[in-house]
Nucleic acid binder design. Structure first.
Length: 432
RNA sequence: UCCAGCGUGGCUCAACUGGCAGAGCGUCCGGCUGUUAACCGGAUGGUUGGGGGUUCGAGUCCCUCCGCUGGAGCCA
């Protein structure tokens, strides 16, 4: 008797195995039961035929319900009728726990409110498990990408003082006698400090935005990967982003073909994602949108609909660079050729998935940074340590942040980022 | 926060212009030795989100509250 994972059964033909898992679905034709089993590694159909020797077992199996946890024993048989090519001829079965109630999710016709209310159980379904497996692959690949390039992982703090872009859209918490503290919206400023020690650094973790955003692209708590590179400028920054995104897409194509197929992704839209990506300046983008009939003027923000139009002509993500200084954060390096714009870029995913990366070269001269902080009406005192980074061996440096759930949504072809994270925190939902 | 929409059995939805609350799925019982969202027969299941109003009569119209969905702004 071999204890086996379902995913390994194809290599165990004719062996007697034990599988520990759950009953995903059950059908019966009177004298033959079909038990669809899952164990986290895959699905397999267990077949139990009534015969003189197993009447008690056959009768007991009738009492099982969907999501019964159970340990089964049987012989692995090749069968062309089975989806995975193999079946289990069951010889024995122990129910660990038989549910007293019906499993709430049993047909693919539930509404999204109901599914989110039952998210803790919804993730047991194949499609949701496949999405979470792809997410895992993406996170694993991100770490591998940086590790291959000798970047150092630096875990930036989740609780911060009143530093950041503006405290208005931060979650406030009480920090003992210190007073108010905030949940991090970004680890960037800390990565800037770390890259002056370690050269090339990255982080990967949750961030929080107390914005009442209510769209298919927004979560209150989302995961972000940020990178920061010393002695790197705008061009090298974009180059690294293109490599990273291409690396992720190709790794998922390579490692998760079954999962992508089961979530219904059109793979042709993910192939040939290799550097370089199409590129456009903000000014070009505005002229392009004006030709398409949008009423945007230079200096306006580019909204969701505009982003979709900009990206739709391309198979690869599009890089939009050099936005107006007034519309971007204070720390971005002005373009030496045109001080009205800054050396920054966004990367827009194809098919309307929107901004997946925001990036910039950072101001490295203290005097320029002080001037910008004052122009933006921010408090110099609260940027004390950030300014000190420019007092001790300051160098040109650049970095970016990539939204994990948006990348997962794009690669999986999801309608909404809430399925791209195990337990989404959205504007009006914090349960389960 | 603003704009729009939705709320009817456990789930997904019908119900004309205000006139007897229905179907499919699930569940339960019975049948079926190759089912894949199995199938066939029967049964079960309702304070139409809460409150108030108009009306002979409200699931339907009005007010209000609650919940949810989509979008906007902001962003990744």
């Amino acid at each position: 008797m071999i204890r086996a994972s379902i995913s390994d059964l194809a290599d165990l033909l004719s062996h007697e195995v034990e599988v520990r898992g759950w009953l995903a679905r059950m059908r019966s034709s009177g004298k033959i039961h079909f038990l669809q089993l899952r164990d986290g590694s895959g699905f397999v159909q267990g077949v139990l035929e009534l015969n003189a020797a197993n009447e008690d077992l056959f009768e007991a199996a009738k009492k099982l319900r969907i999501e019964t946890s159970l340990i089964v024993r049987g012989v692995v048989k090749e069968d062309k009728r089975a989806p995975g090519g193999v079946e289990l001829q069951l010889t024995d079965l122990d129910a660990v726990q038989v549910p007293e109630k019906d499993f709430p999710i049993n047909k693919p016709d539930h509404g999204i409110d109901y599914l989110m209310e039952n998210r803790h159980l919804w993730i047991r379904t194949k499609r949701q498990a496949d999405i979470l497996r792809i997410r895992h692959e993406i996170l694993k690949t991100i770490r591998q990408f940086y590790d291959d390039r000798a970047f150092t992982l630096v875990d930036t703090p989740i609780i911060t003082g009143s530093i950041g872009e503006s405290a208005g859209n931060c979650f406030e918490i009480d920090y003992f006698d210190y007073g108010k503290a905030y949940l991090a919206q970004t680890g960037q400023l800390y990565l800037e400090a770390a890259c002056m020690s370690l050269g090339n650094v990255y982080n990967l973790g949750p961030t929080f935005r107390a914005e009442k955003s209510k769209t298919r692209r927004h979560l209150i708590e989302f995961w972000m990967n940020e990178a920061e590179m010393a002695y790197h400028g705008h061009e090298e920054n974009i180059g690294l982003q293109e490599e990273l995104v291409s690396f992720i897409v190709n790794a998922v194509l390579e490692e998760c073909p079954d999962e992508l197929a089961s979530v219904g992704r059109d793979l042709s839209r993910l192939q040939n994602i290799v550097p370089p990506f199409p590129r456009m300046s903000y000014s070009e983008a505005v002229r392009f949108l004006q030709k398409k009939g949008f009423s945007v003027n230079w200096g306006d923000d580019i909204g969701g609909d505009e982003e979709t139009v900009l990206a739709e002509g391309f198979e690869k993500p599009v890089v939009i660079e050099r936005y107006p200084a007034s519309s971007k954060a204070f720390y971005m390096q002005p373009d030496p050729d045109d001080e009205t714009v800054v050396l920054c870029n966004d990367m827009l995913a194809p098919e309307g998935y929107g901004e997946i990366i925001g990036a910039s070269e950072r101001i490295f001269e203290k005097a320029t940074l002080v001037r910008k902080i004052e122009e933006f009406g921010l408090d110099l005192e609260s940027y004390k340590w950030y300014l000190e980074l420019r007092e001790f061996g300051t160098v040109q440096h650049s970095g970016f942040g990539m939204g994990i759930e948006r990348v997962v949504s794009w690669i999986c072809g999801l309608e909404h980022v809430r399925e791209a994270i195990p337990f989404a925190r959205t504007l009006y939902r914090i349960y389960p």
